[in-house]
Amino acid sequence: MTKKIEVILREEKFQDVKDALRKIGIIGMNVVEVRGHGRQGGITLEGRAGTYQVDMLPRYQLNIVLSDHNVERTIETICAAAKTGNPGDGIIFVYPVDDVIRIRTGERGAQALHYKGDIDDRRASGNGHTAAATAKV
């Protein structure tokens, strides 16, 4: 089974999250700039004379598609890296994915998600994190 996780996170935490995911072997991802708000509501900005409220705040939306058994570890990694403890840290949505097709090769399903040295390769090779595997990507 394949899942998609959609992560709304602070722009300034994106690099940390990307690095942490790379470290556990989550390689494929894409990112979209979004605006919005959750429970936080908004923030106050300085105007010419006095302040004003802004309620659509800039965030990144990180999209990752991965196998079921990798979801929990990925979520834990993201939460650890993205958390500041202040309102506005973001949110994660998990969706089922019907199928995955890699356009170049026509591979489908879990096969289409495989990268050399990714999280599953590492599990197979005793969780080894080799410099070579990282460099390949």
Partner: peptide, 14 residues
């Protein structure tokens, strides 16, 4: 501007 929050750049140039 500072007294009312932070020293706004838009305020300073105004």
């Amino acid at each position: 501007s500072w007294r009312d929050g932070k020293p706004s750049v838009l305020g300073i140039v105004t």
